[in-house]
């Protein structure tokens, strides 16, 4: 009896989490301009609408280009910073980490308006560049917090050994240290990319009118009225997220299996 109650509770929570998403998915095939629960027949035209409208395609391209660039630049700057931070004294290092934490604990809207004000103060007009800069700023902590612990684990021994054996500093870093900290670098990059793609608030305040990412376009579209094409977009995003997470789970399970295999022998 107790087990049944437990089962029902877990089921209800996950139903609560998934019911709205599934509703969007089902409605996206409904042949009705506004998403309503009255079924008017099956159609794929809302998906066609998403792919045929240039505003959606532009927003999609902006989202991905900004995401890749922000995550990429944050990763390069962040990894270099971690190496630099290792050279700092203990006190300086604590200071740097405190500063790194600010964007993570600050309310998003405050980060957003602070950047907007800074751009205004220095006469920088808003563009894709300001969005990119803002995204790099909030991505950097994720890189630092993922890479620094790995770098500490690795230590300097392997690097010093490579140098003793005649490798230049760059070669020693790229062929000895980097492979060691790669899991942290990869996680930092992926987290940054997800944060950037998912961001709404900071983009909303640092974008010029006329330039949209998916989030800001969704926001301005729903203001005018919710059309069924938004449901179709949800279905597409749901499928992409599902695919990415399945691959992630598969890779992680593989890695875990490899580890136990190696540990066993």
């Amino acid at each position: 009896m107790k087990k049944v109650g437990k089962f029902i509770y877990i089921g209800l929570i996950f139903l609560f989490l998934y019911l709205p998403i599934f509703t969007l998915v089902i409605l996206s095939f409904n042949d009705s301009k506004n998403p309503s629960s009255i079924w008017k027949g099956f159609t794929l035209r809302w998906f066609e609408e998403i792919f045929s409208r240039s505003e959606w395609m532009e927003a999609l391209i902006n989202t991905f280009v900004i995401g890749i660039l922000a995550a990429g630049i944050a990763t390069v700057v962040g990894v270099a910073a971690c190496v630099g931070i290792m050279a700092l004294s203990r006190r300086q290092r604590i200071w740097m980490l405190q500063l790194t934490n600010i964007p993570m604990v600050n309310a998003e809207i405050v980060t957003a308006i602070s950047l907007m004000l800074a751009f205004a103060m220095f006469g920088i007009s808003l563009s894709r560049g300001t969005i990119l800069f803002a995204h790099i700023c909030f991505c950097l902590p994720y890189v630092i917090l993922n890479v620094l612990p790995k770098l500490r684990q690795t230590g300097t021994l392997a690097y010093d050994a490579a140098r003793d054996l005649g490798a230049g500093p760059l070669k020693a870093f790229f062929s000895v240290v980097l492979p060691d900290i790669m899991p942290g670098v990869a996680t930092g990059f992926l987290m940054s990319f997800t944060m950037s793609v998912d961001d709404f608030v900071i983009t909303h305040f640092t974008r010029p009118s006329g330039i949209n990412t998916l989030s800001t376009l969704i926001y301005s579209q729903q203001k005018v009225g919710i059309r069924t094409s938004l449901c179709a977009l949800s279905t597409l995003i749901f499928l992409i997220v599902l695919l990415v997470l399945l691959v992630r789970m598969f890779v992680m399970n593989r890695a875990a299996a490899d580890k136990t295999l190696k540990g066993g022998t």
């Binding site: 969007l24 998403p35 998912d198 709404f200 919710i226 938004l230 997470l245």
Partner: peptide, 13 residues
Amino acid sequence: WMNFLLRTIAWKI
């Protein structure tokens, strides 16, 4: 990981 605006819109619907 679903966009939170879309999730909120789902409740409005």
